[in-house]
């Protein structure tokens, strides 16, 4: 008789919803586990295809950003483990980078490759770029609340708890106060610029 208990499977998000939840509740821990599991494979691939360790790091970070944004926006479809998805994106990003540098012949992508290729990043709009500077000048609390909600897509319940607000409503009001502060700073700057230009 076998009295040995089966080993539990390694903790791994089973699907996109689980991955999303894991990223929202423990972003650093989840990204660190994905990093440990996947980066060595990406690094090997990039080094074997003419890249440097820094290139490997860059494409891997781009791939993780794609994964994060898709997962929290609920637009990620996983047909395999997240690490497989990350490797596929990284390989395709590196192929595209090689083509951009003119080191690889331009070949046609297969449908599968094209599916894993994120859209060519657009140059950030000048207006959005100018907003960046004012985000950096907000207080730490406002910056954290706005980025947690609008970029990291954390639920307001979580934001309220993290910033010791007594209710979601208080956190919501604070979020809009921060947004108002940002709008005011940007509006003043734009008005001053327009003023200088019309003088």
């Amino acid at each position: 008789m076998n009295l040995v208990a089966p080993t539990p499977p390694a903790a791994r998000p089973a699907d996109a919803a689980a991955l999303r939840q894991a990223l929202l509740t423990d972003r650093t821990g989840t990204l660190t586990r994905l990093y440990q599991r996947t980066f060595p494979m990406v690094r090997r691939y990039v080094l074997a295809h003419g890249g440097t360790p820094a290139d490997a790091q860059d494409v891997f970070h781009d791939a993780l950003i794609v994964l994060y944004e898709k997962a929290v926006a609920d637009t990620l479809t996983l047909t395999a483990a997240p690490s497989t998805f990350l490797v596929a994106i990284s390989r395709n990003l590196w192929r595209r980078e090689l083509q951009r540098r003119g080191q690889a012949p331009l070949t046609e992508l297969t449908d599968e490759q094209a599916e894993h290729l994120p859209a060519e990043p657009e140059a950030p709009a000048e207006a959005a770029e100018s907003v960046l500077a004012y985000v950096a000048r907000l207080g730490e609390r406002c910056q954290s609340i706005l980025l947690s909600f609008y970029y990291f897509r954390q639920p307001l319940e979580q934001i309220a708890a993290a910033h010791q607000y007594r209710s979601v409503r208080s956190a919501t009001v604070q979020k809009f106060k921060c947004l108002e502060r940002l709008r005011q700073a940007v509006r003043t700057a734009w008005a001053e610029t327009a003023d200088v230009l019309t003088r």
Partner: peptide, 21 residues
């Protein structure tokens, strides 16, 4: 104008995530 704030926050968030990585 508010849409541009959201685009700016998207850029700022992406930069923060890159720093975390």
């Amino acid at each position: 104008a508010q849409q541009q704030l959201y685009q700016g926050l998207q850029l700022a968030g992406r930069r923060q995530l890159r720093r975390e990585l």
